[in-house]
Design a protein around this nucleic acid. Structure first.
Lengths: 299, 299
DNA sequence: ATAGACATATAGGAGAAACCTATATGGATG
DNA sequence: CATCCATATAGGTTTCTCCTATATGTCTAT
């Protein structure tokens, strides 16, 4: 036989109250239940833990030796239960978020900041990666929640629409098309484009749009970041299709303008993604729902 | 429902082996038993502790949070079991010994020293008190074992004969009776005696012996310690009846002599005493039997 | 000394828990 | 697509825990 938690608990109660009956009361059980637990414990340990003197009960030397262990075990369990409680009540926890480049730079930090203010006890990590890597992390369980544009293969993934993610055509304010209204998409076939590398969501979307419209896509240069593309467009090296979210600052300062092309802005959404059929931690689940809620509010 | 030790143990095993089946093997139970324990724990905590991915099992964040608590609890219980084992194996423990004056000063320290060398892990305390206080301590459970001469009321006490405790009549070497042989007890009626206070075992014995023999006891002085009596006898203030154990040193140095009185030495024994019907701690029981054994060997 | 009060121990039985074997289910792999 | 490996589920047995009722024992007061 083995020592049980119950036995330690009962032992502690009897030691504290110096009485089997009072311990039973305190534990809300009958007195024989207490006697039985103590007897079982004493048999297991081959030690007498209490001196039963008829009137009162005293710890033996062995009992005094054991008591601190019982106390520490129970204290430790209390701590553990408190930790569990905190996890369940979102007072503690950890969520790993992964986001594709544009989302991770221009969209997620704002929402994550708001979430952090709401649940300051939850540790957050944000990894900004390319689309492929994001999806991989998610499936490997290394990220709890992801935010990205296009999703390659929705298999095993739970996907929810998040904030709008409009694609616009940008040019420098000096560009000939900058003042035009309702530019037909076909006209862009004559323009030189600055594009992200293959593998980028924006690049994929863009190619699809031009292909569907039967408009040729003339690529001037391939660049590895939205930042580089914006610089190049501002320097009149060409025009580009970018997420609206990525150029707020440049629009405000007038360094770039959005061209009024027919069919643009292409209305898309950022997707909130997590593995389907997996139980999410309380914190990850809270973040998921917080993000969904956030998308419903005006910003 | 409540978290059980078993659940923590199983949880720990699964976390360690990253597999329900291997944990089951390690714990010598079936795999469903492990599944059931983990399920119960997860339900109790309202948390998912493991990611079951089909091939392998991984801890969730919540599981990682809980694991150190489970480990600490089990470590603590290990420590407790080791402490219990030590108590049972006399590698640790504590025994409170009480002894009446003469025993405590002249007899017990030697035996206690031998016991301590045999069981160096056991803490010992020795209280030297008058007979009455010794008995009181014993009955109050404040002493585990006592060594004394005469016992007032053997009720509730377990008594065993210990080392011999002979009473002798002593005088200074200059005393007229010092060279006499076979002195009739009656002759001592003419001598002046130095005696211990009422309440001392030696005093009680002495009075009984003289009363039974019908010899008057002339008391010169009442002194509170054997030491004082020895000094006084050596200074020719009278003669005395003392335990032989108390005067070894003075006999060797010739400062005192034993008178060859008829009926003396009165052969008595020290008594080893403990409360009857009480379970003794392993250490106290070991000391009891060690003392008994010691008395059987020649010293 | 004995009856009453108080405390623990014992007995017998009901409900819950833990475990077992057998089998289903579900990803991962060739 | 079939097979393999791992976990989940089902049904039944043993063990544990607790209950009520009652015995035993100690201390106190009459």
């Amino acid at each position: 036989m083995d020592v049980s938690l119950r036995q330690l608990q009962v032992f502690h109660a009897v030691a504290k109250h110096r009485s089997f009956s009072r311990a039973a009361q305190a534990l809300c059980v009958s007195q024989p239940a207490v006697s039985a637990q103590i007897r079982a414990l004493e048999q297991t340990l081959h030690l007498t833990l209490f001196e039963r003197t008829g009137r009162s009960v005293e710890l033996t030397e062995a009992g005094r030796q054991l008591l601190p262990y019982a106390e520490q075990v129970m204290e430790l369990l209390d701590d553990a239960m408190r930790a569990v409680h905190d996890l369940n009540n979102l007072q503690r926890g950890r969520v790993a978020v992964a986001a594709s480049t544009t989302a991770g730079i221009y969209v997620v930090p704002r929402v994550l900041g708001a979430f952090h203010r709401a649940y300051p006890g939850i540790e957050l990590s944000l990894d900004v990666l390319n689309r492929f890597a994001v999806q991989q992390r998610l499936l490997a369980g290394e990220a709890d929640v992801a935010i990205m544009g296009l999703i390659e293969d929705p298999h095993d993934l739970e996907i929810a629409q998040f904030l709008p993610n409009d694609l616009v055509v940008i040019a420098s304010p000096r560009h000939p098309l900058a003042r035009r209204r309702s530019i037909p998409l076909a006209e862009l076939g004559r323009e030189l484009f600055l594009v992200r590398e293959v593998g980028s969501g924006t690049r994929a979307d863009m190619e699809r749009i031009f292909a569907e419209a039967g408009v040729p896509l003339r690529i001037a240069m391939e660049l590895r970041s939205s930042g580089a593309i914006k610089q190049a467009v501002a320097a009149d090296l060409g025009i580009a299709v970018v997420p609206l979210d990525a150029i707020q600052l440049e629009l405000e300062t007038g360094r770039l303008v959005v061209l009024d092309v027919e069919g643009f802005p292409v209305r898309r959404s950022w997707s909130l993604v997590r593995r389907a059929g997996r139980p999410a931690s309380p914190a990850a689940d809270a973040l998921w729902h917080y993000f969904l809620q956030y998308a419903l509010q005006p910003h």
